[in-house]
Simulated scan of single mutants.
Amino acid sequence: MTPPMDTGTGDTAEAPAAPSAVSLCLTLTTLQKRADFLRAASARRQGTAGFLLQARARNDESMGIRVGFTASKKIGNAVMRNRAKRRLRALVRDVLPSLAQPGWDYVLVARPEATVTRPFSSLCEDLRTALASVHGGRAR
């Protein structure tokens, strides 16, 4: 079977979608150093049913958003810990760019059983309310 012949000139091809304005001005980077996690742990906290959110303003010139993820052995074996962190990373990709404040560090700490079993839509709502609470109701 031969493929159909393409006689088009390419004029009807769609241009790739332009990145949103939020993604252009805010960069999400992952926290790597233990000291950054410890500084976030001593700052603001907001517990939810699915996870614990720790947040702090860096007070430096960097306007990027930094995010860290923690899942201790209380979550379960390595498979469960990795699943919990994957769900938290997906949650951050969906919700955080539109609601986070530039120049802040956020750490999401997984909760035993809840992070893995809670519906994803509930986790998204948990993150929205936690961010609003951490920022004093001033979430963008």
Score class of each variant (00 low, 15 high):
Ala35Tyr: 06
Ala35Asp: 09
Asp36Cys: 05
Asp36Gln: 13
Asp36Ser: 08
Phe37Trp: 05
Leu38Cys: 05
Arg39Ala: 07
Arg39Val: 01
Arg39Ile: 02
Arg39Asp: 02
Ala40Phe: 00
Ala40Trp: 01
Ala40Lys: 00
Ala40Asn: 02
Ala41His: 05
Ala41Tyr: 04
Ala41Asn: 11
Ala41Cys: 08
Ser42Lys: 15
Ser42Asn: 14
Ser42Gly: 12
Ala43Cys: 09
Arg44Gly: 02
Arg44Asp: 09
Arg44Tyr: 03
Arg44Glu: 09
Arg44Pro: 00
Arg44Val: 10
Arg45Met: 08
Gln46Pro: 02
Gln46Cys: 15
Gly47Tyr: 08
Gly47Val: 11
Thr48Arg: 00
Thr48Trp: 05
Ala49Thr: 07
Gly50Val: 09
Gly50Met: 01
Gly50Asp: 00
Gly50Glu: 04
Phe51Tyr: 06
Phe51His: 04
Phe51Val: 07
Leu52Thr: 14
Leu53Gln: 02
Leu53Met: 14
Leu53Ala: 11
Leu53Thr: 06
Gln54Asp: 05
Ala55Gly: 15
Ala55Trp: 01
Ala55Glu: 00
Arg56Met: 12
Arg56Thr: 07
Arg56His: 07
Ala57Pro: 02
Ala57Gly: 12
Ala57Lys: 15
Ala57His: 15
Arg58Trp: 01
Arg58Ser: 03
Arg58Lys: 14
Asn59Arg: 13
Asn59Met: 14
Asp60Gly: 13
Asp60Glu: 12
Glu61His: 14
Glu61Asn: 15
Ser62Arg: 15
Ser62Asn: 15
Met63Ser: 11
Gly64Gln: 15
Gly64His: 14
Gly64Trp: 01
Gly64Asn: 15
Ile65Ala: 01
Ile65Val: 12
Arg66Pro: 02
Arg66Glu: 04
Val67Phe: 03
Val67Gln: 02
Gly68Phe: 00
Gly68Pro: 00
Phe69Trp: 06
Thr70Gly: 04
Thr70Ser: 07
Thr70Asp: 04
Thr70Arg: 07
Thr70His: 02
Thr70Met: 15
Ala71Met: 07
Ala71Leu: 07
Ala71Phe: 08
Ser72Asp: 08
Ser72Ala: 12
Ser72Met: 10
Lys73Ala: 12
Lys74Gly: 11
Lys74Thr: 12
Lys74Arg: 13
Lys74Asp: 06
Ile75Cys: 07
Ile75Arg: 04
Ile75Leu: 08
Gly76Tyr: 02
Asn77Ile: 10
Asn77Leu: 13
Asn77Gln: 11
Ala78Met: 10
Ala78Gly: 13
Val79Asn: 08
Val79Leu: 12
Val79Phe: 08
Met80Asp: 14
Met80Ser: 13
Met80Trp: 04
Arg81His: 11
Arg81Cys: 06
Asn82Phe: 03
Asn82Cys: 11
Arg83Ile: 02
Ala84Glu: 02
Arg86Thr: 09
Arg87Val: 11
Arg87Thr: 12
Arg87Met: 07
Arg87Leu: 09
